[in-house]
Amino acid sequence: MLEKDKKKEKDFNLSKPSEEQAKKILSEVGYGDKIAGVRMHAMAGNTKEPLGSLREVDNFLKAKAPGKLIKGQTSSVNYIDPNALSSWIKEVLGDSELAKKIEKNIDKEDDYRKQAKTIRKLIEKRIKQSRELISEN
């Protein structure tokens, strides 16, 4: 592995959460604690969608992956403010490590498409980790 790639890999490293943390990470939060996603559409305007779990956040970002748009075949983008997301992950899900990683990684990206990709990679990793932990025990 190249030095550069090793470093990159490190940026996506997440330490193993405790079982208690994992449960919280996978939890569904109450209405007043939700984060919003914004579905942007060229014709329909912007609509807001309250999202209550990491899984929902991941689904939301995945569904209208911004890359698709470049082909000119769809004109929607699902947007979540990266800073709002990291503070939600820290404050509501109590996962400061994931929040910090997101903050650190998005700082390096100058456009939302890349940021969203980075965020998804981290979130999916965390979800997988937490699920494995819970099913192990």
Partner: peptide
Amino acid sequence: SWGPEISPHANYEVP
């Protein structure tokens, strides 16, 4: 911005 205030974490603006 685009409100509503669903929760403190919903209160941001879309560019």
